[in-house]
């Protein structure tokens, strides 16, 4: 059985639970919001949560591969934000609103 001391002192578990919480908040943002910009921000939150668990595992297993993966994830996140914002600009030009429901009307 775990004592309260083992629960309070921070270990790998704490970082993973924090990662799960942030990921859930991000996924809720993607599911519940209508503004496309906020949805992109929520995706950034989810990627950040994944980064936390990557770095936590990298530190606690003393293995640097996780930190390399974090660099890759950050690059992909920046690229994804650029493309997503370009799509948002396109939606706004066509419909004067950045609502996600206009996404299906985009052509070409």
């Amino acid at each position: 059985m775990q004592s309260t001391e083992a629960l309070v002192s921070v270990g790998l578990n704490h970082y993973l639970v924090l990662s799960a919480l942030l990921f859930t908040i991000g996924s809720l943002g993607v599911l519940l919001r209508k503004n496309m910009i906020v949805i992109l921000m929520s995706i950034e939150l989810m990627l950040n949560a994944v980064n936390i668990s990557f770095v936590a595992f990298a530190t606690y297993l003393d293995n640097l591969d996780g930190k390399i993966m974090v660099l890759f994830v950050m690059t992909i996140a920046a690229a994804e934000a650029a493309v997503g914002l370009a799509l948002a600009v396109n939606i706004f030009k066509n419909f004067r609103e950045v609502n996600i429901r206009f996404f299906e009307h985009l052509r070409g």
Binding site: N13, V17, A20, F23, T24
Partner: peptide
């Protein structure tokens, strides 16, 4: 509910 379940599953699996 789905997001809450997801959070619980992730945290449990991590644990």
């Amino acid at each position: 509910v789905g997001a809450g379940l997801l959070c619980g599953f992730i945290a449990g699996a991590a644990y």
